[in-house]
Every structure is written in structure tokens, then in C-alpha cells.
Design a binder for these strands. Sequence first.
DNA 1: GTAGCTGCAAACTCTTTGCAACTCT
DNA 2: AGAGTTGCAAAGAGTTTGCAGCTAC
Lengths: 133, 133
Amino acid sequence: MDLEQKCIDAGLKMTGQRKTILKVLDESEDHPSVEDVYERAKEQDSSISMATVYRTLNLLDELELVVRHDFNENFSRYELNMAHHHHLIDVESGDVIEFQNEEIEKMKAEIARKLGYELVECRLELYGKKIKA
Amino acid sequence: MDLEQKCIDAGLKMTGQRKTILKVLDESEDHPSVEDVYERAKEQDSSISMATVYRTLNLLDELELVVRHDFNENFSRYELNMAHHHHLIDVESGDVIEFQNEEIEKMKAEIARKLGYELVECRLELYGKKIKA
DNA sequence: GTAGCTGCAAACTCTTTGCAACTCT
DNA sequence: AGAGTTGCAAAGAGTTTGCAGCTAC
């Protein structure tokens, strides 16, 4: 099921601006900031406003179609909520690498359970320096 | 308290305000926001200003005497940089529980290494719901 | 037709900063 | 004495919101 359909199912109107923003997110291979999304959306629809980008990203976040990140910056970054994964941030270049690890997933749930909690969500971010070959 | 000594060693002047803020941090068992630190510091020195609290926390962060957190809120929380640990945040009450896990520590470093990185830092936060007994 | 959406600008929140006065060393 | 620190108020950055007009359904 595609993104637009999920929005419609959630009761959202499929306006041109929303289509544009969804397209931008879908085409982004990185983790764009709100500003980034705004810039990219403007290329396709120059009348789009920052307020709409904020409102739309907040809606998508509530619907959990998008994941909001905060990589120790003073603004948010977004990405589509696809396969569950974590991030390694290159402290020198700012590059973001995605990874998954089954063992860690199990361990997280296990730790939460031992503390008397059911794991709802989690953030794991590694910050590293590239090893020179 | 060798916190003060560490600050002096770093070349900071030990002003009354800084002593107060260090004391507040040392006595806090939670993860106070800047506002919290300010309120608690004001109880001991009513003339202290928000600007000084911000400036001091930023300095302590640079000296790595303090760790800045951002638990998906739109403001920062701080705690003294003591033993390395992670946090489980109760999504219903906002309570923060600290934990450590050797196995996860090893795995983190291992994952980073496999991706060609030397682990410099890391954030692991679990968000959970209390399991009713 | 109307509930919901949009752009604009103003407002808000958290944080930083310029400046003149003050204080630790 | 002098460099560093402070409080104040103003400025900044990121984000939210009230409103009047517009649009998808």
C-alpha cells in the first residue's frame, strides 16, 4: 500500500502540497531536515510554505509514516518509516549510515523486560570516526 | 568535591554561581532540564540568571563533566558524567531509569568496527510501558 | 457546501549573545 | 590590575499558530 493511500485511509485530504512532500520524502535517500524538505518541495511547487511542511511532517509523524530524528543537532530530521534500523553518524563528516542488528533487537527487549517494561520504541545511535585504511 | 577541582584545572574561575550550579548537579538524582537547574540554583542564590546557567552547562558539557540529553523533548536535560549508562524512559510517566549492559557495549563497538568506524560515542534510549503486575 | 487545508505573518520556546558592571585570582 | 564572568535585555533559531481565503471531497 502506498503512502498516499495510507494518508487517505487516515482521513487526510490529498492536496497537491501533501503529494509533493510525500514525493520528496520518497525520493530522498538521506535524512532531510525540515528545511531540506522545504527546499526540495519548492523545486516542484514554488508556492509551498514552510508552515505546510511543518504541519505535514507533524501529521506524518503522528501517523508513524515518518520517523523524526534528532542527531544531537538543534533541529529535526525526517525519514520514511520503512524497515526498522539504527544509525551510525560519522562525527567528522556528518554522514549517516544505517544498520540493523538482530541480536541488539533481542537484547533491547530483554533489558526492558527485566526492568519491568514493555519496549515501545527505541533510539540507538552510534557516533564514530572512520578508521583509516 | 573534585568537580570544582576539574573546573579549576580546566582554567575556569570558581565563581559563586558556578559552585552553586555544580552543587545542584551533584545533588540531583534525576536528569534536570536547564530550567530545573535554574530553579534549584535560585533556591541557593536568588540572583543567579538563566544566561549563566546556560553558559555554565555549555562549559561543563565541553569539559565533558556533564552529559546533555535530549529525550525526544524540545529542550535539553543534563546529568553529571559519571559511570557510562543508558536510559529507559517510561512513555507514560516520563520517569527515567538508568541501566548498563556489558554485552550491548561490546556489540556496539563491534557493529561500528564492522562498518569501518571507531566508536566515539553512542546514545541508546529505550522507551517503554510499565508491565502491570 | 463544508470541513479541512494553505500561505502569511506574528507568536512562542529554547538558547545564545552584546554590553557594561563586577569578581576571582 | 586584568582577564574572565555575570545579569540583563535583546536577538536568534527552530517551530507553532490565528486567521482569512482556498480546495478536495
